[in-house]
Measured scan of single mutants.
Amino acid sequence: MTEYKLVVVGAGGVGKSALTIQLIQNHFVDEYDPTIEDSYRKQVVIDGETCLLDILDTAGQEEYSAMRDQYMRTGEGFLCVFAINNTKSFEDIHHYREQIKRVKDSEDVPMVLVGNKCDLPSRTVDTKQAQDLARSYGIPFIETSAKTRQGVDDAFYTLVREIRKHKEKMSKDGKKKKKKSKTKCVIM
C-alpha cells in the first residue's frame, strides 16, 4: 500500500485542523484551538488504489514558523489553505509557496490551493482571484467548507493525484537520464 505524506499549511484560523478532522473523523470542530502540530493517518481508496494518507496539520501562528522547514522537508505534497473571508490569509499563500519551493529546492512541488469556509456569506476573496492565482502557479484550486464537508475529500484526493503525477514524471525523467548515460565512448 502506497503511503502519501501530505502537509496542510496556511495562516492561523483558516480551518486547516477543521478540514483535516472532517476528512479523518467526519465531524466539524467549530471551536478554535490553535494547533502546534498534529499528525493523522487514514486509509482510503483513490482511483481504485488503496493508500495510506499521513497528514500533518501544522501551526499557522507566526511564533511556530521555525518548525516549518522541518515538516516541509518531509512532506510530499501540500494543501495551501486560505479562508475566503480573510484576504490576508490569501496573500500569505505566496509566502508559504515560496518557502516550500526553497526548502524542497524545487520549482515543481505537488500543491493544491484550497479556499476554505465557502459556506460563509462574508467572502472577501473572489473565486476568480483564487483561480487566477492557482493557474499562475500551475496547481489545482478547490473551494471547501469544513463545516458542510463540501470539497473536503476532493481537496485531499486531488493532492494525492498531483503527487502521483509528480512521481510518474520524475521516474520518466530518471529513465531518460539513465538511457543517456548508457551511451559509451570508444577510443581507438
Rank of each mutant, 00 (worst) to 15 (best):
E3A: 04
E3G: 03
E3T: 04
Y4M: 15
L6Y: 07
V7R: 01
V8L: 08
G10A: 14
A11W: 10
A11S: 09
G13M: 05
V14Q: 13
V14T: 12
G15H: 01
G15Y: 01
S17E: 00
S17I: 00
S17K: 00
S17Y: 01
L19A: 15
L19E: 14
T20G: 03
T20M: 02
I21K: 01
I21S: 02
F28V: 01
V29Y: 14
V29A: 05
D30G: 08
Y32I: 04
Y32T: 01
D33F: 01
D33V: 02
P34G: 01
P34A: 06
P34L: 01
T35D: 00
T35M: 00
T35R: 00
D38V: 00
D38K: 00
S39Q: 09
S39G: 04
R41S: 03
R41W: 02
V44D: 07
V45H: 06
D47K: 14
G48C: 04
G48K: 10
G48M: 06
E49D: 09
E49C: 05
T50L: 13
L53S: 08
L53V: 11
D54E: 09
D54S: 02
L56V: 11
D57L: 00
Q61A: 11
E63T: 05
S65I: 07
S65E: 09
A66M: 13
A66Q: 07
A66L: 06
A66I: 04
A66K: 03
M67N: 14
R68T: 15
D69A: 03
D69C: 03
M72Q: 08
T74M: 12
T74I: 05
G75R: 03
G75C: 12
G77T: 11
G77C: 09
G77L: 10
F78M: 13
C80T: 03
V81H: 14
F82H: 07
F82D: 03
F82W: 06
F82I: 10
T87S: 06
T87V: 14
K88Y: 01
E91P: 02
D92E: 13
H94L: 14
H95A: 15
H95R: 13
H95L: 08
R97L: 15
R97D: 14
E98D: 06
Q99A: 14
K101G: 10
K101D: 03
V103E: 15
V103P: 03
K104Y: 14
D105M: 15
S106D: 13
D108F: 06
V109M: 06
V109I: 11
P110Y: 01
M111A: 03
V112R: 01
V112N: 00
V112G: 00
V112S: 01
V114F: 14
V114N: 00
N116K: 00
L120K: 14
S122P: 09
S122T: 10
R123S: 11
R123V: 09
D126S: 07
D126E: 06
T127Q: 06
K128C: 06
Q129T: 09
Q129F: 14
A130R: 09
A130P: 10
Q131Y: 05
D132H: 06
L133K: 04
A134T: 07
S136E: 08
S136F: 09
S136L: 10
Y137S: 11
G138T: 03
I139T: 08
F141D: 03
F141G: 03
I142Y: 05
S145W: 04
Q150T: 04
G151A: 07
G151M: 11
D153F: 07
D153A: 09
D154H: 05
D154P: 05
A155Q: 13
A155W: 15
T158D: 03
L159M: 13
E162D: 07
R164M: 09
K165C: 04
H166G: 10
K167Q: 05
K169N: 11
K169Y: 15
M170E: 11
K172E: 03
K175M: 12
K175V: 05
K175T: 06
K176E: 13
K178L: 06
K180S: 05
S181N: 11
K182I: 13
T183L: 11
K184S: 13
K184Q: 10
C185D: 15
V186E: 14
V186Q: 10
M188N: 13
M188E: 15
